[in-house]
Design a protein around this nucleic acid. Sequence first.
DNA 1: TTGTACGCGTTATCAA
DNA 2: TTGATAACGCGTACAA
Lengths: 339, 339
Amino acid sequence: MSSNVTLKQIAKELGLSAMTVSRAINNKDNVDEKTRERVLAKAKSMGYTPNHLAKSLVSQKTYTIGVVIPEISHSFFPEVVRGIEEVTYEKNYQLILTHSAEKFEREQSAIETLRSKRVDGIMISCSQTTRNNSFYKNLTNIGVPIVFFDRCIDGIGLSCITVNDKTGAKQITQHLINHGYKKIAHLRGPQGVSIGKKRFEGFKEALSEAHLELDEKLVADTGFQEEGGYEAMKKILELPKEEWPDAVMAVNDPAAFGAIEAIKEAGLSIPDDIAIVGFSDDIRAELLPVPLTTVQQPAYEVGKKAAQKLIRLVEDDEEKHENIEVLTELMIRSSCGCK
Amino acid sequence: MSSNVTLKQIAKELGLSAMTVSRAINNKDNVDEKTRERVLAKAKSMGYTPNHLAKSLVSQKTYTIGVVIPEISHSFFPEVVRGIEEVTYEKNYQLILTHSAEKFEREQSAIETLRSKRVDGIMISCSQTTRNNSFYKNLTNIGVPIVFFDRCIDGIGLSCITVNDKTGAKQITQHLINHGYKKIAHLRGPQGVSIGKKRFEGFKEALSEAHLELDEKLVADTGFQEEGGYEAMKKILELPKEEWPDAVMAVNDPAAFGAIEAIKEAGLSIPDDIAIVGFSDDIRAELLPVPLTTVQQPAYEVGKKAAQKLIRLVEDDEEKHENIEVLTELMIRSSCGCK
DNA sequence: TTGTACGCGTTATCAA
DNA sequence: TTGATAACGCGTACAA
């Protein structure tokens, strides 16, 4: 248990003051070259490691950024984290990763803890159960910059880095419409979460621009997981047969996977009986028996852009908040009946 | 930029000493109930957040654990992180996540930084380029507990939590042997990395116990990625046709994926011409046109066990280092010719 | 029940 | 070029 070596200990060994040792180690120029060499040698032999806690206490800067993620094993987020890490590594910031497990309470407590650790900035992707309440409004003035990514809270003046959910959803819906589908169902994500809401908006806009009516019965609520998609699709298939949709647009790929199960169980085939499309280009989408048409989200880009924005906010007081959209790409495969 | 509120500031507002405020906020019993209420109300209205940096400086404890990961977007590691997070959340520790990007130098600097941040413990999974040199030997006596997971450095007395790589590799090789394959190739992982070495050992042991000879030409080196597998397989297929293997055991699934590409390109079919098996049960393995027989690694369990071990080392001086193996499971699918 | 002094490891500032 | 002092925010130990 070799306890940690301090500047003072090195100073004592060398008959110097802690201050001189500090200067030598931090490469200040007002140190005699011989002194510096002695200090560095001693520091090395004693196994000195600077104490960032003490440094940060003085400098009011931790070079640490907190990240709040709703679901680590969701394939999207590790990619985002890789993008974030790419930027923070280069800029010499460390990352404290917290996981809300889709629970608003854990999200709040994570943010509190990050503040206590005096991180220089916080990046948040909201949980499914997050609501835009006073908690977030109070967060706009706490001094530490906050940036949302992927799942955001709108209208409180904080930066938000997303994919273009609305446009992407609109495009893929239009793709279905252009191929002649008329009765299109939507497996709708949580409307309290921005991506759920925006994708639904894109869906509606595509329908209305094509003068197709929105059939409320063909809109079923789901979470972001397979089970939800499965249940939602089953509910739709409980309608009289003549009301069944000829195509389904799911809020994301996992929901689509669940729906595909339900469609298969009902003895229907994809895309002949019912076409289906997703959103997110999950790693599995391409590998399904009938590969899933979906919208690719550049997760890595989202992470990078979000981290860059946050660091700019951290390092430059003049920097202003803004919303940034990263462009999605339509991935056309067989499940929509195209190939 | 409302700078952070301190105990002293609250004290001043209330005409108390900082000490009393501290006691009130930390629920010590020797505070007048009325005083406590006044303090808590004031703290809330002023937006007080305790400064963990200062606390840690005094207590010499950060309730933070550092994690060094070689590749975040490799599907195995996010699962491990989820397991780690599960444990640390419950025990009230925070996680600093660092990413070595498979580079030993980044791994070293990450560890240095974590030490500077005075984390209570460090969890490491080595990069592909890591070598067991003096750097790691020096790490055994630095005071902060270290635990390896998945990719370890042996023989320096630190804990290591892995899946049973050797036995798993042996079992899946035996599975091939039992089905009559005689010329089995191995796409071998980096031998400086424990999993690469152990899986190769398991492979060899299965062969020798079955009295099959190891054909050096059928052992091709690969990294842990698809490209490496692709190249390695191509190299094997450059041998005269009569020397081709009838089965291939890859160090992991991504390498197998790459090899499958090479096999297809050569116009061969799986498993009829060449059977192939992997290791790790990547999320994609099951979804291939010919689902891949592989070894499932309980990544989540590895993370949990590793975190539990580390926290025990952190909290109990008596706790000793040990190696823990989490059991793998053979996932039999079609690529080995069984189904 | 409340307050004062001191130390955690470091750096900024001013003096020598 | 070097050193002494104070301060960062908090908690322990002791005194009032």
